[in-house]
Amino acid sequence: MSEEPLIRWDWIARNWANGSPTAISVLLENHVVTAFLPVLLGLIVAVPLGLACVRWRWLYQPTAALMNVTYSLPSLVLFSIFLSITGLTRSTVVIPLTFFALAILIPAVVDGLASVPDSVRQSAVAMGFRPARRLLLVELPVAVPVVLAGLRVATVSSISLVSVGALIGQGGLGNLFIDGWQRQFYTPIVVGIVLIVVLAVLADGLLVLAQRLLTPWSRARRTT
């Protein structure tokens, strides 16, 4: 085994897009979908839930406790439990990962809305904003940096957690780890790790860019 190089480039070239369902490009595509779907679903659920927690304060404690418990469960445990409900489908990975995303995003939405300075809120009231319009046009935009910080954490962890799903056959690039292990072959494992880290760094960079575009005022303030 010691003569075996860590990377065999010809293997990568042959398996990148060879039309088989286990080609690297197919796995990459699967990985991206399986990783981003939970974050998207999580965000769609977390915004109204977070708003509800801010509106009705007593909701927050039990929600936070429940999310804390969920987050402490190993991903493989949740995958295994959902395996008995949703079977060997993509949902078995997507649903638990959505819970993990929620555990990060709900506190982010609540903290984000709490980070809106009272002076800003009162200025909006004084300018004649009704509650709904104030929320949409003033409070949510001001909360964006904190929500996006949570979104970055959720996205990066989701991308890396998908690979555990390979143990139940739904892991995207994680399948390369299983393949490499079974054949005692380093190249797929290294390719998998590198692609997942690159994917995470790319997604993180895009979210940083999104934050710059969504909150131009924060940059303008820093330069003055």
Partner: peptide
């Protein structure tokens, strides 16, 4: 790095 690194991949690689 800790958040992005896939656990399973690291395990398999180190053990191999």
């Amino acid at each position: 790095a800790a958040r992005a690194l896939p656990t399973l991949g690291l395990l398999v690689l180190v053990v191999l």
